[in-house]
């Protein structure tokens, strides 16, 4: 039971974080606007990647085959969600979490730890690259459009379920990135772990049932690729069973808590670069 005083304190605390977030992103946007050529490059890269993925799906479906029992439209929902998550990675995850390694190498992490704000929050939200936004919008549009063509009926439950699953998948993706970035506290030179993650996550372009049993288990239990794209796609298509929804939320919460615990553990071992 929170006392009125504590609730008020919590509210001003949250408000402070919200105001900080607005400052962070405002200044990031202002500086990124200096590099508008990047927008062109990102849009061309996105179009190329989508065209390649569509080509691959066309090669498969064009000969009358199916990926693990999913129709073309249903597989496109998965591709849309993959594109959306890729956009989230380039908007928020890569610019912020990629910088942690540099902070550790150059010893500037000390200044972050001294700030009167949660260090995980600071490191995860400090900057924002708007050039991933077209990818987020396109991915979402593709997922919704394909789901409608696949015959999904947009009821309240479907929309809520889909939104909740997308939120969990973003949280899981964030936690994976953050945990990997955290390892740089111990092994300074491991920034390319994130490349390994990216390569493994590219399996998320396809529904998980398109893989042989061994890989399916690997991508569900060890590396939660299934929860990143397949489960949200099932939810958007309105056919996810409630226990998969619950499981996905549970995985997201557990992943977030783990990332928090792991960060604290890493900080306990942190000895600054200069000392």
């Amino acid at each position: 039971m929170a006392t009125p005083g504590r609730t008020a304190a919590a509210r001003t605390g949250l408000l402070r974080y919200w105001r900080t977030l607005k400052r962070f992103w405002g200044s990031a946007l202002a500086s990124q606007m200096e590099y508008q050529v990047n927008l062109l490059i990102e849009v061309v890269a996105m179009a190329g990647n989508l065209a390649g993925s569509l080509l691959l799906l066309w090669l498969i479906y064009g000969r009358g085959q199916q990926l693990g029992g999913w129709s073309l439209e249903e597989a496109l929902v998965v591709l849309g969600i993959y594109t959306l998550l890729d956009g989230v990675s380039s908007t928020l995850l890569r610019p912020n979490l990629g910088a942690i390694v540099t902070q550790v190498q150059q010893g500037t992490l000390d200044f972050v730890l001294l700030k009167p704000i949660d260090s995980q929050f600071w490191l995860s939200t400090r900057t924002l690259s708007p050039w991933g936004l077209p990818e987020i919008v396109t991915g979402l549009a593709l997922a919704i459009g394909a789901a409608l063509r696949a015959g999904a009926r947009p009821g309240v439950a479907t929309i809520l379920g889909g939104a909740l699953m997308l939120l969990s998948s973003v949280v899981i993706l964030y936690s994976l990135w953050f945990v990997l970035a955290t390892t740089s506290i111990w092994f300074v030179k491991t920034w390319n772990v994130t490349e390994v993650l990216r390569a493994a996550l590219s399996a998320g372009r396809y529904p998980i049932s398109a893989f042989p049993a061994g890989l399916r288990t690997l991508f569900t239990v060890v590396l939660p690729v299934a929860f990143l794209t397949t489960v949200p796609a099932e939810a958007i298509l309105g056919r996810a069973s409630s226990h998969w929804l619950l499981l996905s939320v549970a995985v997201a919460v557990a992943a977030l808590l783990f990332s928090r615990w792991f960060w604290r553990l890493a900080l306990r071992d942190y000895t600054s670069a200069s000392s």
């Binding site: 030179k189 491991t190 390994v196 990216r198 390569a199 590219s202 398109a210 893989f211 042989p212």
Partner: peptide, 26 residues
């Protein structure tokens, strides 16, 4: 000196095995 990094680069090239999974099902 960078052997650990090299190992990670080698691992990040596993894409052909993922695609093998897809195509072998087909």
């Amino acid at each position: 000196e960078y052997r650990a990094e090299t190992a990670l680069w080698a691992l990040s090239g596993l894409l052909p095995f993922i695609m093998l999974g897809i195509w072998s099902q087909l």
